[in-house]
Simulated assay, not measured.
Amino acid sequence: MQAFYQDLLNLNNISLTQFKNYQTRNFPFTERIVGICGQNGVGKTNLLDAIYYCCFTKSYFTRSDSQNVLHNTNGFRIEGHFTLQGDPLKVVCILRETGRKEFSANDEPYEKLAAHIGRLPCVIIAPDDVQIITGGSEERRRMLDALLCQLDPGYLQHLMDYNKVLQQRNGFLKSVADKRITNYNLLDVYDEQLCRYGAYVYNKRNEFLQAFLPLVSSFYTQIAGQTESLVLHYDSQLHDCSFTDLLQRTRQKDIIVQRTSGGIHRDDINCQLNNQPFKALASQGQRKSLLFAMKLAEFDTLKQAKQFPPLLLLDDVFEKLDADRMHNLLDYVCVKNLGQVFITDTHPDRIKLHFDNLGMKYQVITLENEVRNKM
């Protein structure tokens, strides 16, 4: 490892057992910039997802752990050896045959998986992430929540509590009509809890986005290479009233539609271009530029908060940006930052060409176990 980033976050190697398409594999990482090459379907994305598991205790691409087990086997094991600010850190994730998941750091098991979130900050950019720009509000909330959970353990706990109470409240609302319930005392209890947890989440989002959204706009200009009329703002029903008032105002509607229609679970990041909805007006290149701008703003925010760069995982990005935008992206993440970067591509020659143009040392790994280092 190079001395200039010994004190930062670095993944030295990762071992996979029965994880997705890997029976047993070990991958050593000897440089800060790592290219992972191979044809589609050989496991490039799966390797990135294993790294993501080490940071977030879960997959980026699937909600069920059982979907990540090698076909015709039971359970999987991921072991990652990191250097974190000069100290070694071994992270192990095990999914047992029973479906129980265990997670440990330096052989100390976590009682709650949430306690690990934020310890190894990480940002991933994957092909389907364009849904953050073109999809519904839940996609943008998911990205925002993943970032804030890495910055604030209290946010993660309040968000989990809010979502649990929201499910309970929605369940009660569905039972109102079925069971002809007329006593709403339990609904009052749920409302009090939603207000308590939701107000914390709203205040954190509101404060955070005041600085974050201008940063996104700045990165968008940097990637696009020109100034465009982009406007981003935080939409929330709580801008205009308290959570208590909102729930009282929407209670009768909630009973009729049998779900909670007001709250932080309806928040959104509104994007406009030339005073029109961004996703309706923007070109493919503009959409991709905004996605990468959001992700780089996430990267920069984590770097400032943690005082070291997060890991950056770039999956198949060469197919998503033109040459100029790709150069601007790689110049920022590989040259202007000292964090470790993992990039997948189907074309070894293309990835080497881009890396050579950076003038930085790099490592290229193929999934046929061919590893080459180059100055």
Rank of each mutant, 00 (worst) to 15 (best):
Q150R: 07
V91T: 01
F208Q: 09
G198R: 03
Q18T: 12
L273C: 10
S289N: 07
E368G: 09
L247T: 09
F355Y: 03
L144K: 00
N275D: 14
V189I: 14
S229G: 04
Y197R: 03
C122S: 14
S64I: 11
Q222C: 07
Q131D: 14
S59G: 09
I351N: 07
I343K: 06
P153M: 02
Y60G: 09
G359V: 01
R142P: 01
Y200F: 15
L148Y: 03
G41W: 00
Q2R: 15
L273F: 10
L16G: 00
E298Y: 07
L156V: 04
L209V: 03
D129S: 04
N21L: 12
Y190W: 15
S229L: 12
D345S: 12
T227N: 10
L194R: 04
A177Y: 05
K44C: 05
R169Q: 04
L48C: 05
E111N: 15
I14V: 09
H81M: 06
N12H: 12
Q258N: 08
P309C: 11
S15N: 12
F355G: 00
E138V: 11
T62H: 14
M143D: 02
P277S: 09
E139P: 02
Q258P: 03
R32V: 07
F318P: 01
L230I: 06
N46C: 09
F355Q: 01
L11A: 05
V189S: 14
S59I: 05
Y332R: 12
R325D: 01
I117T: 02
L329P: 03
V257Q: 11
G136D: 10
L314P: 00
D324K: 10
Y60P: 02
D87G: 02
F29K: 05
F172L: 15
D107K: 15
L173W: 02
C241D: 00
P28A: 03
T57Q: 10
R372S: 15
Y202C: 08
G35E: 06
E102N: 13
T227K: 14
L313F: 04
R196W: 12
Q226H: 06
V130Y: 03
Q272C: 15
D188V: 04
N13D: 09
N270Q: 15
V130Q: 08
F318A: 10
E192Y: 05
P88E: 11
T366N: 15
Y52P: 05
D129W: 02
P348R: 05
R266G: 07
D345H: 09
Q252F: 00
V333F: 01
C334A: 06
I132N: 03
N46E: 11
H116R: 01
N106S: 09
S289Q: 06
V91M: 06
N68K: 09
Q237Y: 04
